[in-house]
């Protein structure tokens, strides 16, 4: 019991500290869960409608929205240190750079030869 109280005081102290460990509560998790379920329903519903070239765009946009919610709230990046935010940003940036350079190569390789 005394451990619990000590832990509580510790948290209270941390909330005043800028870089302190932030605890995300069940309320936030429930909201994110509902958003993710709604996103899943939306993307499945959208896949039943023929939108031509927009089908992949919408599916990937919804997937990216869901992934962003998971990263920010389930993975606590919104509440984390600047170092973590920078690390995540660097990872996404590197991934997108590699994909776009690779695709640019494949798309432009045959230019002029038809």
């Amino acid at each position: 019991m005394s451990e619990q109280i000590e832990l509580g005081e510790h948290q209270h102290h941390d909330e005043q500290d800028e870089d302190a460990h932030h605890i995300v509560g069940p309320g936030v998790y429930v909201i994110i869960l509902i958003a993710l379920l709604v996103g899943t329903a939306l993307t499945v519903w959208a896949s039943f409608i023929d939108l031509g070239p927009w089908n992949p765009v919408i599916a990937l946009a919804i997937a990216t929205t869901k992934a962003t919610l998971v990263v920010l709230f389930f993975m606590h990046v919104k509440y984390s240190t600047k170092l973590t935010k920078l690390t995540v940003g660097a990872g996404i940036f590197t991934f997108l750079t590699l994909v776009s350079l690779t695709l640019a190569d494949y798309i432009s390789r045959a230019w002029g030869s038809w």
């Binding site: 993307t43 499945v44 896949s47 039943f48 023929d50 939108l51 031509g52 089908n55 992949p56 599916a59 990937l60 919804i62 997937a63 869901k66 992934a67 998971v70 990263v71 389930f74 993975m75």
Partner: peptide
């Protein structure tokens, strides 16, 4: 675990959903 969830979110879109038409 959340990272594995994110991978599936994209796999679901790419493998199952985007080619239905």
């Amino acid at each position: 675990w959340h990272f594995v969830d994110i991978i599936w979110i994209y796999l679901f879109a790419l493998l199952y959903l985007i080619s239905r038409h």
